[in-house]
Design a protein around this nucleic acid. Structure first.
Length: 556
RNA sequence: GGUCUGUUGGUGAAGCGGUUAACACAUUGCCCUCUCAAGGCAACAUUCAUGGGUUCAAAUCCCAUACAGAUCACCA
C-alpha cells in the first residue's frame, strides 16, 4: 500500500469509467444565446403521478416569467427518488400543463427529447452527475463516507439530546479527514458509502443573499457535509442535482417552494465549489388551507381541491383556474386582468416583488366568481361545445341528452347571453345540469319538487295555467305581445298587472303579475328561479307545455 | 431546541412616515324588475397580533413578546 494516494487516484478508483471532464460538459451545453433579459426557467416536479395546486402555481409563474421575457421554459423530471416514482407521470404532467395552456419549450418523454440541454430526466443523467462528483473528489471537495444508518441515528439522537445542531459537521464528520488510503481500502473491501460534500463554511459567519420576492436574507453559512450521492443507487441527492442541472441547463431563475429557503447557503457553497454562477431565486409561499379554526398547509391527502384533477372533474375552464392561481400569486394580477380582459395570461408582467410573502388561502369562492365571468362571456355555441367535451369525459348521461338536443340546449344557454350584462348562472360545467334539466322531457319522470311562490292552491294554479295556455299563449307573439297578454289575463283573474297599483292596494287583488308568472314558471320548470320565461316558452312550444300541465295535475 | 420567514376585515390584499386604511370576492340591505341572473346604490377594519420606544406625526421605522409557518434525511 502506498502512503500518499492522491485525490485524483481516489476519484479514479470510485469512478473508473468516467472519462469526461466538467469542461467537456461546458462545451456540450454552452451558454444559451438569448436576448438580454430573457429568463430561462424550469418546472421540475418529482413524478409522483399527481399535480397539485402548489405545482400548478410554480409552473404558471415559471411560464409567465419565460414567456414575458422571451426566454425558455423547460420541463425536468426529478426522478431521483426511485421509491416514489410513478410510471407515466411525466406524460401526465405534460398533458395537464397543456390543458392549462402551458406548453414547455423543452421536455422529454417516451424516449423523445425536445431541446438541446437534455436529457431532461435525472435518472438518465448519471454520467453527468458522476463526472461532476468525480471532479469534486479530485479537488478534495468531496469524500466517501462510511457512516452506517445506525451510526447516523446515534449521532442525531445525541445531538438532539444535548441540544446541539443536528447534522454531519465538524467532529461528527468522522470520515472527512480519513486518509485516502484508508478510504480506498474500505471501498476495495466492498463497504457501502455515500459521497459527502466537504464544506468549508463557518456557522458563525453570516451569508447574505437576495431572494427576488423576500428581499435580502441573512443566514449562517453552511458547514454541513451533506450527502451528494446516495449509496444505494449512486443517484445524486436533490441538492447536487439542482446545482449541476440548473447550471448545465443554463437556468437563470429558480422558482421553488419556500421549504427550500433554508438550503440556499448549501446551494451557494456548492455553486461556489464549481465556480458556477448562482441563479436567481424566487421562493414562493405555501398555499394554505383553513380547516375549521386552524390554518395549515394544503394537503394532497385531506383536501380534494389540492389536486388539479378536482378542477377538471368539476369542470372549471382552464383559464379560470389559471387566473385564480395568478390572483393569489401576484397581488396586481387582478387589476391587470380588469384592464386586459382578453390578453393571454402569459403576457402578464409578473413581478416577484408583488408576490405575497406569507402563505395564501386558496379561495374557492373567488374561483367560482372568476369562472362565472368566463362562462358568461362565452358565446352559447362555444359554451355548448365545451360543455359537451366535459360531459363526454365526466357525465355520460348529460352527454347523451345535450348531444341529442343540441339545438334546444344551445337556445336555452343563449337566453340573456351575448349582451353587455350577460347572466352569470354557471360556475363550472358540472353545475350546469342542475339548472337546466327541466328543458329535457326525459328528465320529468324523476321525483318532482315544485317550488311555489305566493300562489299555493293547486286548483288556482291549474286554472291560471290552463286558461293561459289554451286561450292566450301564441307561439308567434313577440316578447311585448306576450307580456301584454299575460297582463290581460292577470287583470281578468283579479291579479294586479301593475306592480305600483298592487303595492298601493295589495288587499284589492289576489296577487300580482309576479305571482302570476311564477305560477306558470313553476308548472313549466318546477323552479321559481329560471331565465327569461318568454324565451323558455318559445323553446318548449305549446305541446310540451300542455304536457307539463298534465304532469303537474297528476303529480302535485 | 437551532436557523429562517411571516402576522392589515370572513377571504385575497393595497399601502412602505401625514390617506375618510384602496380594490376584488363573500355577506347583508335597498332600488330596478314577470322570477332569477345581471346592473345600480349602500352597509361591512374607529383600526393594521400585543407591549414599549423613535417622531410634531407610525399600519408604515426600532426593540421585545405572542402566535403561525418552513427547515434541521442517503425525500424532493
Amino acid at each position: 500500500m502506498r502512503d500518499n494516494m492522491t485525490n485524483q487516484e481516489l476519484a479514479d478508483l470510485i469512478f473508473p469509467n468516467i472519462n469526461k471532464t466538467i469542461e467537456d460538459y461546458e462545451e456540450i451545453y454552452p451558454e444559451r444565446n438569448l436576448k438580454e433579459g430573457a429568463k430561462v426557467v424550469r418546472f421540475a416536479p418529482s413524478p409522483t403521478g399527481f399535480m397539485h395546486i402548489g405545482n400548478m402555481m410554480s409552473a404558471t409563474i415559471n411560464y409567465v416569467l419565460a414567456k414575458s421575457s422571451g426566454g425558455v421554459f423547460y420541463l425536468r423530471n426529478e426522478d431521483t427518488d426511485q421509491a416514489r416514482s410513478v410510471e407515466g407521470a411525466v406524460e401526465f404532467i405534460y398533458h395537464t400543463l397543456n390543458h392549462y395552456g402551458i406548453n414547455p419549450d423543452e421536455y422529454e418523454f417516451d424516449g423523445n427529447i425536445v431541446g438541446n440541454y437534455g436529457p431532461y430526466i435525472q435518472s438518465e443523467r448519471m454520467e453527468i452527475y458522476h463526472t461532476f462528483i468525480k471532479h469534486l473528489i479530485s479537488i478534495g471537495r468531496a469524500y466517501p463516507c462510511f457512516l452506517s444508518s445506525d451510526e447516523l441515528n446515534q449521532i442525531r439522537e445525541y445531538q438532539a439530546k444535548s441540544k446541539k445542531r443536528i447534522g454531519i459537521y465538524g467532529r461528527y464528520a468522522k470520515f472527512r479527514d480519513v486518509s485516502n488510503e484508508e478510504a480506498a481500502q474500505r471501498i476495495r473491501n466492498g463497504e457501502k458509502f455515500t459521497i459527502r460534500f466537504r464544506s468549508e463554511g463557518d456557522f458563525n459567519r453570516k451569508f447574505i443573499f437576495e431572494d427576488l420576492t423576500k428581499g435580502k436574507i441573512e443566514m449562517p453559512e453552511n458547514d454541513i457535509d451533506v450527502p451528494i450521492m446516495k449509496s444505494e443507487n449512486l443517484l445524486p441527492t436533490y441538492h447536487f442535482a439542482h446545482v449541476v442541472d440548473d447550471h448545465l441547463m443554463r437556468t437563470t431563475h429558480v422558482v421553488r417552494g419556500e421549504e427550500w429557503m433554508s438550503s440556499v447557503p448549501l446551494h451557494f457553497e456548492l455553486f461556489k465549489a464549481f465556480g458556477f454562477k448562482m441563479p436567481k431565486y424566487i421562493h414562493t409561499s405555501l398555499i394554505l388551507k383553513k380547516d375549521g379554526d386552524i390554518i395549515r398547509k394544503i394537503s394532497k391527502r385531506k383536501d380534494p381541491e389540492a389536486l388539479m384533477f378536482y378542477y377538471e372533474e368539476k369542470g372549471y375552464p382552464a383559464i379560470a383556474v389559471i387566473d385564480a392561481v395568478l390572483t393569489i400569486a401576484n397581488s396586481n394580477f387582478e387589476e391587470w386582468r380588469q384592464n386586459h380582459a382578453d390578453t393571454p395570461f402569459y403576457e402578464f408582467p409578473f413581478s416577484p416583488k408583488k408576490m405575497s410573502s406569507s402563505g395564501a388561502l386558496f379561495d374557492l369562492d373567488k374561483l367560482d366568481n372568476i369562472s362565472k365571468n368566463y362562462l358568461a362571456k362565452m358565446k352559447a355555441e362555444e359554451l355548448y361545445e365545451n360543455y359537451l367535451t366535459w360531459a363526454e369525459k365526466y357525465d355520460e348521461h348529460v352527454y347523451e341528452l345535450i348531444h341529442k338536443y343540441k339545438s334546444d340546449t344551445v337556445s336555452f344557454l343563449n337566453i340573456e347571453r351575448e349582451s353587455k350584462k350577460p347572466r352569470k348562472d354557471y360556475e363550472n360545467y358540472s353545475s350546469i345540469f342542475s339548472k337546466i334539466w327541466y328543458m329535457y322531457d326525459e328528465e320529468w319522470d324523476r321525483e318532482l319538487h315544485y317550488d311555489f311562490g305566493c300562489i299555493q292552491d293547486k286548483d288556482e294554479i291549474v286554472r291560471i295555467v290552463r286558461e293561459y295556455l289554451h286561450n292566450y299563449y301564441c307561439e308567434t307573439d313577440s316578447e311585448e305581445e306576450w307580456f301584454l297578454k299575460v297582463k290581460e289575463l292577470c287583470d281578468k283573474m283579479n291579479y294586479a298587472s301593475n306592480m305600483k297599483e298592487y303595492k298601493e292596494n295589495p288587499t284589492k287583488y289576489k296577487g300580482n303579475v309576479a305571482d302570476f308568472t311564477t305560477a306558470i314558471r313553476v308548472v313549466l320548470t318546477t323552479s321559481s328561479m329560471t331565465p327569461n320565461l318568454y324565451d323558455i316558452m318559445k323553446i318548449l312550444g305549446s305541446k310540451r307545455m300542455l304536457k307539463r300541465l298534465e304532469i303537474f295535475q297528476e303529480k302535485y
